[in-house]
Amino acid sequence: MQTDSLQNNRGFLFGDAVFETVKIVDQKILFVEDHYFRLMASMRILRMEIPMDFTLEHFENIILEEAHKNDCAASARARITVFRKGDGLYLPEQNEVDFIISVNKIENPMYQLHNETYEVDIYKDFHVSKQLISTLKTTNRIINVTGSIYAKENGLDNCILLNDDKNVAEALNGNIFILKDNILSTPPLSEGCLNGIMRKQVLAIAKTIESIEVKEAIISPFDLQKADELFITNTIRGIQPITKYRKKEFQTALAENLVMKINAKIRLG
């Protein structure tokens, strides 16, 4: 156990850290600008000091260099965790940062739709707060951890998190979308959901489909059972259709269409 390296690590001690998880395909980081600017915004919100050399180019280079070192630049999942350095208790003695990068090879570079049974339910033990900090990717993910344990204990593939008003916020590992009567909806950021990169991509692409109306709207748990289609989005998996919620089963046609359009956008570069 590397206790010495953790004694003054504020990310470990206080969750004083933010992170980005990116997907690498053919030695390129997908949606790299979105990831970079979200990280910069998160650091500013948490009053971290952004190094002068921490440019978009630098962000991309250090991640790809680590991928090359691990021989997985062709297809990989990479995570950069930025933490505030130095001593102090809740009050840090400085706002300078450091970072660590981890990289793991993945099998499928392009997004694929997984049509196997995927069952979810609502996780009720804890709620997501409706505040700006909930939209950031900080290392304080204990609700997601306990919710994932609950899902495993109950034979579920995922769980849906509610906010303080008992409305839908997100899934354990991504944003949630519902399709009802050709209206595609996802909770607005004001509901406490993560400001997801794939969420942004799906919103933009769905708006190009003439038969679909797209909106950000409050979603209640009752709306889930009335939906024609439900799916979860995140950068690594892409789109994960929900096939079963309680006694209701769902279609996957729009999810299939969106996956094809996202892959086409990636191929075009």
Rank of each mutant, 00 (worst) to 15 (best):
E57A: 14
N140Y: 02
L89M: 08
M110V: 02
D71W: 12
K261P: 01
A76K: 05
N163T: 11
N104Q: 15
V22S: 04
A74Q: 15
D164G: 05
E116F: 11
A67D: 06
N154I: 05
S220L: 14
E256C: 08
I232A: 07
Q201P: 01
D181L: 08
H68K: 15
R44K: 15
Y123Q: 09
K85T: 07
M48G: 04
T138H: 10
I29S: 03
V145T: 09
K85S: 11
D26Y: 10
F99P: 00
N154R: 06
L172G: 04
G192H: 03
L162Y: 05
E213Y: 14
A206M: 14
N144M: 10
D87T: 13
V202Q: 00
M48F: 13
L13Q: 12
I143G: 04
R141H: 07
V82E: 00
N8K: 13
A217V: 12
K265P: 00
M40N: 07
I232M: 06
G269Y: 10
T138C: 07
C193H: 12
F99G: 04
E96S: 12
I239E: 03
Y90R: 10
Y118R: 10
P187D: 15
G192Q: 04
L258G: 05
C193V: 11
N263R: 13
V18P: 05
I50E: 10
D181I: 07
V22W: 06
N182I: 08
I29M: 05
M52I: 15
N173K: 12
Y118V: 05
N163C: 11
Q240L: 09
R199P: 00
A41S: 13
R199T: 06
L184W: 03
D181G: 03
K166P: 00
C193F: 11
F19A: 03
S190F: 11
Q27K: 14
F99R: 03
A227F: 10
K226Y: 15
S211I: 12
Y90Q: 02
K166N: 15
L91I: 07
V22N: 03
G155M: 07
K244R: 15
K166R: 13
E256D: 12
K244M: 11
D16I: 01
L113W: 08
R199S: 06
M43S: 03
A264T: 14
D4W: 04
I183D: 04
N234M: 10
G147Q: 08
I236M: 12
H68L: 12
K248H: 14
L254Y: 06
T135Y: 06
Q2Y: 14
N70D: 10
I176D: 02
F19L: 02
A227N: 09
Y90T: 05
Q2M: 03
I197D: 01
K180D: 15
M110K: 10
T233V: 04
L194E: 00
L268F: 13
D34L: 11
L46R: 08
K248S: 11
Y111I: 10
K23M: 04
I232P: 00
I106Q: 09
E107Q: 14
T117H: 14
L184T: 02
C159Y: 01
D34N: 13
E119V: 08
L46A: 07
R141M: 03
T208H: 12
T146R: 09
S129W: 08
L179V: 10
Y36Q: 06
A217P: 02
N115V: 11
G86S: 04
F83M: 01
